[in-house]
Design a protein around this nucleic acid. Sequence first.
DNA 1: AGAAAGAATTGGAACAATTCTAATTAAATT
DNA 2: AATTTAATTAGAATTGTTCCAATTCTTTCT
Lengths: 147, 147
Amino acid sequence: MSESASPVKFRPEEIPAELGGLRMTKQRKEVYCLLMDQRDHPTAQDVFIRAKERMPNISLATVYNCLEALVNHELVRQVNFDRAPSRYCPNLEEHVHFQDLETGAIHDVVFKKGININDFLELPEGVEVRELELTLKGIMPSSTKKN
Amino acid sequence: MSESASPVKFRPEEIPAELGGLRMTKQRKEVYCLLMDQRDHPTAQDVFIRAKERMPNISLATVYNCLEALVNHELVRQVNFDRAPSRYCPNLEEHVHFQDLETGAIHDVVFKKGININDFLELPEGVEVRELELTLKGIMPSSTKKN
DNA sequence: AGAAAGAATTGGAACAATTCTAATTAAATT
DNA sequence: AATTTAATTAGAATTGTTCCAATTCTTTCT
Ligand SMILES: [Mn+2]
Ligand SMILES: [Mn+2]
Ligand SMILES: [Zn+2]
Ligand SMILES: [Zn+2]
């Protein structure tokens, strides 16, 4: 499980002009940095509020556009818990999400090493899984919480 | 995997006046029967359209109310795929959902017998999982499809 | 049974998240 | 520099869902 803030601060000027085939505009860099920087799965609104601090003229539409572009180019992942506002995650490793019901915080959870989908699901022969989304909700002991 | 229509037809008049602590009104019986009857994970709109055939005056608000009541009393499950309209499922066995990307059809998938969440996820010690939602999308071979 | 209270249904208004539109600005290409 | 292409912006529109207040239905009480 991880919620640890990355030790380095991502700065827009360090981001190359193109990333994964996507032209990185000023706004896209800002949104991307902010996600990489505070890896806490913010909503589009959260991103909008944070982005405005360094870029007061950015619009909510642009935030949505940037997030969509980043998601389409697989630089960022969109995470849905039920029908709550989508959240965005810059962790590209295969992982799933756990929401602490006490704090609302979302944590990344990885699969056991070497585990395969057919090891735990009774999938019919020949089915090809293209997308998997797994979300968990529950309670974390406070000892685990602070790390 | 299952999409098999149940062989018996559920009729509202067979439903008891109360189910799992929920008073079964005429509308709730209708909605519940219809879900039990065609186990294809319809949306609220789908339910509304189907319900109107036998109950032309039912309102969409009532369909939402009924579904909410049934879900709260754990007679029916709400299923979300990304931000698409919620779907409703009368299968109370523990299971997850697979959507066929070619047809849009949703199929129930069960866990391997005896499997535990800690067998496939790297969950920190002491975390208590209260809810789990797993959705899959992919391609089914047409042989598997028709059963 | 009849009256009163409580609960559910209804149609339409309100809502929240997201998407769309058309105008403006910025960047890339010629 | 002029032209073409792409991105950003503010605000309107859309969509699924929830809320509201009035009406109807059911249950409880006398
Ligand atoms: Mn859920
Ligand atoms: Mn998804
Ligand atoms: Zn994540
Ligand atoms: Zn199901």
